[in-house]
């Protein structure tokens, strides 16, 4: 990774555009996954994404007008929150779910704390947790990808199906889902989490440009893989399917795009490694022994809460102290 450190003499001016630019570039890097989601689940996915974004921008604007602050709805952060929230929803939710979710994410997850940079938790995940606790039956009902319909029958109606992780939790064997299916996103799930290859294209872009570092996503994914390999197997220890656990659920989306959120993750590399391992352990524990089939969003939220304390213990010592 190239060195991004700029050395200059004072005065050091804070350049606000750079934050905005990063936000838009992260948004851009999520584009392939969104396109894949729309191709896989149909136009209702597009509707959810647009409603999520519009609601996020609207809530941000209204709250900034009400509290008489500078209106910053075009800095990309609200856009990104709305986009990520929509990516974390199934494609066939009622129209008001992304609207309420995005509104809650911006209002409670972000603006209540004082706006961008002040929030403890990742706002999109706050929105998702709220929706999950309030209307579980919409958030946990997934639709079959369109390609399944073409393969099996000619019905155009949305067919509900469980995600591979949910099937696993119920003890069903996953014979018809291959690694390739998972990699290309031919499975039930949330809009933005299913197509692993599209997510990896975006993630590679962010890594190469240096907007995110490998520390959080690398340790996160590795921890989940190792832990599930050891403990998730049915035939005793060391028989789990780590690759399946990487490719299914929202792990890739969460690890590369949500755990790496600048505001709510640790500052130092050592802290980020700890953060990634913590997320990985929590995700794997929830998946294997928890009440929910998927644990990515709760794991990241819990580690968000631990971020201040991680920062405190991994802070670099000032020379001479």
């Amino acid at each position: 990774m190239e060195n991004k450190l700029t050395v200059s003499v004072s005065p050091h001016l804070h350049k606000n555009e750079s934050v905005s630019k990063i936000m838009w570039l992260v948004g851009l890097s999520l584009l392939p996954s969104g396109i894949a989601g729309v191709l896989i689940f149909g136009t209702s996915a597009l509707r959810v994404i647009l409603l999520g974004i519009v609601s996020a921008l609207f809530t941000e604007g209204i709250l900034q007008i009400l509290t008489k602050r500078k209106i910053t709805i075009f800095d990309g952060s609200a856009f990104l929150t709305g986009l990520l929230l929509a990516y974390n929803l199934p494609a066939h939710v009622p129209f008001w779910i992304p609207i309420v979710g995005s509104g809650f994410a911006i209002a409670i997850g972000k603006q209540v704390f004082g706006g961008l940079g002040q929030n403890i938790f990742n706002p999109a995940l706050v929105g998702r947790a709220f929706l999950m606790a309030s209307w579980p039956r919409y958030i946990a009902t997934f639709t079959t990808p369109l390609s399944y319909d073409a393969m099996t029958s000619a019905t155009q109606d949305a067919v509900t199906s469980a995600t591979p992780l949910a099937l696993l939790k119920e003890g069903k064997i996953l014979e018809h889902v291959s690694y390739l299916d998972l990699f290309l996103g031919r499975r039930g799930g949330c809009i933005g989490e299913v197509c692993i290859i599209a997510l990896l294209i975006g993630a590679a872009f962010l890594l190469l440009r240096g907007y995110i570092s490998w520390h959080i996503p690398g340790t996160y994914v590795l921890t989940v893989a190792v832990f599930t390999y050891i403990f998730a197997g049915e035939n005793g220890l060391f028989t789990g399917d780590g690759i399946f656990h990487i490719l299914s659920g929202g792990l890739i989306l969460g690890a590369f795009f949500m755990a790496t959120d600048y505001v709510s993750s640790p500052l130092t590399q050592k802290g980020q490694i700890l953060f990634g391992i913590g997320c990985g352990l929590l995700t794997a524990i929830i998946r294997i022994w928890g009440g929910y089939p998927e644990g990515v969003s709760y794991a990241i939220l819990m580690m968000n809460a631990a971020t201040p304390i991680i920062d405190r213990f991994t802070k670099r010592r000032i020379y001479g102290k």
Partner: peptide, 22 residues
């Protein structure tokens, strides 16, 4: 009207009281 269950649960109490205090 589809109620938000979370408000009937303990986190909802903390959320409502926190917002009202603010």
């Amino acid at each position: 009207f589809e109620p938000a269950f979370v408000l009937a649960m303990p986190p909802g109490a903390l959320l409502v009281i926190g917002l009202l205090l603010g």
